[in-house]
């Protein structure tokens, strides 16, 4: 039976690569990951990028490297060329016995003062040891927006998996092939499971792509997988229901997209609403997935909490299953 289920999954995956919309859905996690990497440095990176002339003042290079990202270039022309590029880089250019700061002019406001101050500190001989400031830290090492985006896009992938199922069901309906499948020795339950596999593999592959591409490689992969797999349950159910209910791919995709609303709502509640109002999102499985994945991405998760969150998602999905399954079974007749 497993072999037959794999045959059905492989057919779905193969056909999905042949259509623009489905191929795009399969490629979406890579696009998300690239987008996060493009957006995140602009938000999180508070390091000043400095460019200096190679061999001009090795001591200054060593000093500034403690506070900024420093690159050295062979001459002033190379410095000017580097500053002229799209990102924010300040050059510290030798001018006789002194230096001046060279900028493009469109850098993020305030960064030029930071660069100027570092040059001044060096010239004044100030050391970090001279500081009397006391630092207290929350020990949060993960950029918050990057983490938020990765978490959201992982849930996006789960919903996309449901969308893919809906599209595949619509294809079966348009081609009237469900009747032919019903006359093969594969049980209806096995068929439903087989059609669901793509709704699990896509989010899993999407999550792996997101985690690897965005640099969260050190997380507990097992915990992440558990949370992603359980979060696909509701998407799979909705995917089947909408696939059977709708007549066109666009209608089904539109209906499955409605899942983005509770997902966005759950994230908003988790991030912006006070503790005493958190319960309003308890019914949304994505709320628990979001909280679980958030812990995993901040390297604070433990198996107890992860499994508890996963259990909440499973319970909510079972309720949805009991409501939706009779319709799904009937629709496949």
């Amino acid at each position: 039976m497993l072999k037959k289920m794999f045959t059905i999954f492989r057919r779905d995956a193969k056909v999905n690569t042949r259509e623009f919309l489905t191929a795009y859905i399969m490629l979406a996690p890579v696009i998300f990951a690239i987008a996060i990497n493009l957006i995140a440095p602009g938000i999180n990176d508070t390091t000043v990028n400095l460019a200096l002339v190679k061999g001009d003042d090795e001591q200054m290079v060593a000093y500034l490297e403690d506070f900024a990202k420093v690159d050295v270039f062979k001459d002033v022309a190379a410095l000017e060329k580097r500053v002229g590029r799209r990102d924010d880089v300040f050059a510290i250019v030798p001018d006789g016995d002194d230096y001046y700061v060279l900028q493009q002019g469109n850098e993020v406001e305030g960064l030029e003062q930071y660069a100027t101050m570092m040059l001044t500190f060096y010239q004044e001989g100030m050391r970090i040891e001279d500081s009397t400031a006391i630092i207290h830290s929350f020990d949060r090492t993960v950029p918050p927006l990057k983490k938020l985006l990765v978490n959201i896009f992982m849930m996006f992938s789960a919903i996309m998996g449901g969308m893919l199922i809906a599209i595949n069901i619509i294809e079966e309906k348009e081609d009237r092939t469900i009747r032919a499948i019903n006359l093969t020795p594969i049980s209806r339950t096995a068929y439903i499971f087989a059609k669901s596999v793509i709704g699990i593999t896509l989010p899993l592959y999407g999550s792996v792509v997101l985690v690897v591409f965005t640099g969260f490689r050190g997380i507990d992969w097992g915990q992440m997988m558990v949370l992603i797999v359980v979060s696909t349950l509701i998407s799979i159910l909705v995917g089947f229901t909408e696939g059977l209910k709708n007549e066109t791919v666009m209608d089904a995709a539109g209906s499955v997209k409605m899942l983005f609303l509770p997902m966005a709502g759950a994230v908003a509640v988790a991030e912006m609403v006070g503790e005493k109002w958190q319960w309003v999102a308890y019914w949304v499985p994505f709320y628990w997935t979001y909280k679980g994945v958030d812990s995993v991405l901040t390297y604070n998760a433990n198996w107890g909490t992860t499994l508890l969150y996963a259990l909440f998602v499973v319970i909510i999905s079972i309720v949805a299953y009991l409501i939706l399954m009779p319709g799904i079974r009937k629709g496949l007749e």
Binding site: R11, K14, V15, R18, E19, E174, D175, R176, R179, A180
Partner: peptide, 17 residues
């Protein structure tokens, strides 16, 4: 279903395959 075959009046094959 291993023993029976069925040819439908309305053709029903996967159009994308």
């Amino acid at each position: 279903f291993n023993r029976i075959g069925m040819s439908f009046e309305q053709s029903n094959v996967y159009s994308k395959m």
